[in-house]
């Protein structure tokens, strides 16, 4: 059944903005991951901002999928920033004991884009960043 779109991946300059629109189950998350990584390669994106503001739960599977995406994107030469984690979700993630240190995050889409731009500029500027 072709229902409403569960997520969207939009291009903005050398950046991709991936927004998740509704709660995804595990197989939908994996499809999101696959689509996103493919799009990074196809569009030669340098940065990815993943907007998870619509998610009311980030459990161990969702978190590990996001980490995997970050790692896959890095291997493909793109920097990933996750934005929009809700305060309650953040609390639950920490109490659940999820380790998310390797995931770069920002408060919202605007900050996320600024972060990615900064990283890209920094990298072009003689790779001060890392």
């Amino acid at each position: 059944m072709p229902g409403p779109r569960l997520f969207s991946i939009l291009r903005q300059g050398s950046c991709l903005i991936a927004s998740i629109h509704t709660a995804l189950d595990d197989s939908q998350l994996l499809r999101f991951q696959q689509d996103l990584v493919e799009t990074i390669g196809r569009d030669r994106a340098r940065g990815v901002v993943i907007d998870v503001a619509a998610l009311d739960v980030l459990d161990s599977f969702a978190t590990s999928t996001l980490r995997d995406i970050g790692e896959m994107a890095r291997l493909r030469g793109a920097a990933t920033v996750v934005v929009g984690i809700q305060p309650e979700v953040a609390i639950a993630m920490v109490r659940l004991g999820l380790r998310t240190g390797v995931l770069e995050t920002a408060l919202d889409l605007e900050e996320g884009l600024a972060r990615v731009d900064g990283r890209l500029a920094g990298a072009a500027d003689g790779r001060r960043d890392r």
């Binding site: 595990d26 009311d56 739960v57 980030l58 459990d59 161990s60 599977f61 809700q86 305060p87 309650e88 979700v89 609390i91 639950a92 993630m93 109490r95 659940l96």
Partner: peptide, 27 residues
């Protein structure tokens, strides 16, 4: 689980914790 718990007036943090725990267990 979240909808039912919301009827008891749980704080939204608690609701998210319940939903997250259910997600882990049911998986």
């Amino acid at each position: 689980a979240r909808e039912l718990a919301a009827r008891l007036g749980f704080a939204s943090t608690d609701l998210t914790e319940v939903a997250t725990a259910v997600s882990e267990i049911v998986r």
